[in-house]
Write a protein that binds this DNA or RNA. Structure first.
Length: 314
DNA sequence: CGATGTCAAGGAATC
DNA sequence: GATTCCTTGACATCG
């Protein structure tokens, strides 16, 4: 089993995950790839074998009004191949997870077209990096727009408009408010798309009242036999949230403490919670685990420490 | 140098 | 139809 984390490295100062300069300074994939080399060396040192790259690795690559950024992949073919070889040599599984603004099932054609372009760019980066079918682009099904089944149909329709490059890489994840594992399975039955099981989302949205092991097993079964599935795991935040509230009359703002939302991530992973979860995976096929915690790589390394103290595999 | 404002993008709730 | 929240870090600017 591989453990991975997303985007930002906290365990060592100075490691950047993408060229985040403003467009006026011409940020570029080539710069991001230099940063990525440093990250891969760090992952190797820490024996971390899965990593989600920044969705802004190629800045503005699909921006409709900035065509000057459009050819970044072609401008970096050698660098992509080189960094891809580094990742393979270090046995690191790579992935992308486009931001919340990328919505394939949007009724707005402009938005859906942008999503199609975005998935294609990220899939092509993985292709040029020479990554196998385990390197995926993870997305949510999208919005509901007052009609969930229409939302799913629109996802399927637009999925069929994807390039082969994008369709080979794209996978869906169950979310915490709209589309459950059950909904994702329906889309799988119509498209064959693979499902990334998200533990925290499933705990928050499970209208069918499926057991953990049934839902997990169903999601794992959507992956081909020779491709290792992956899942997302996170613990819910328990700390109070400090929210600044503005008085509409006086215009003054003051801090207020509110309970955490159930879908917010904690700093670290509760190792007992993870151990209980793994009991529900007993007898199911093997999978990789993407840790989603505010503590990023620190949370991952701490979880592995805690699990080995508990005598559990890492 | 520290404080503060800003950043490409959508959806949903609220008015 | 317009506004605000969601949520996040780091760039960019200003004093």
């Amino acid at each position: 089993m591989r453990f991975g984390f997303a985007v930002k490295v906290l365990g060592e100062p100075g490691l950047k995950s993408n060229d985040a300069r403003r467009w006026q300074s011409n940020p570029h994939l080539g710069v991001s790839l230099n940063y990525l080399q440093d990250i891969i060396r760090y992952l190797e040192k820490k024996k971390i074998r899965m990593y989600r790259m920044s969705s802004d690795l190629a800045p503005y690559i699909t921006h409709p009004e900035m065509p000057q950024f459009r050819n970044q992949i072609d401008e970096c073919l050698d660098e992509l191949a080189y960094v891809g070889r580094m990742a393979r040599a270090a046995d690191i599984r790579l992935s992308f997870h486009p931001s919340q603004y990328i919505v394939l099932n949007s009724p707005e054609e402009r938005v859906a077209d942008l999503a199609i372009a975005d998935y294609h760019a990220e899939a092509r980066i993985l292709d040029e990096m020479g990554q196998g079918p385990e390197a995926v682009v993870v997305t949510h099904v999208g919005g509901v727009y007052n009609d969930k089944s229409a939302g799913m149909e629109r996802f399927i329709k637009n999925y069929n408009r994807l390039s082969d490059t994008a369709r080979r890489r794209l996978v869906i994840e169950n979310d915490e408010t709209n589309y459950s594992v059950e909904d994702c399975l329906y889309i799988h039955s119509r498209t064959g798309i693979r499902i990334v099981f998200d533990y925290l989302h499933h705990m928050n949205l499970n209208p069918a009242k499926w057991s953990l092991s049934y839902a997990l097993g169903a999601a794992l079964a959507t992956w081909p036999a020779d491709v290792t599935p992956k899942i997302h795991f996170s613990s819910p935040r328990t700390e109070l949230r400090e929210v600044k509230r503005k008085n509409p009359i006086t215009g003054k703002s003051r801090a207020e403490l509110l309970p955490p939302l159930l879908d917010q991530h904690s700093d670290y992973i509760n190792p007992y919670e993870f151990a209980f979860f793994m009991e529900h995976a007993e007898g199911l096929r093997e999978f990789d685990v993407m840790i989603e915690a505010k503590g990023k790589d620190l949370a991952l390394l701490r979880l592995k420490e805690n699990l080995s103290k508990m005598g559990l595999p890492t």
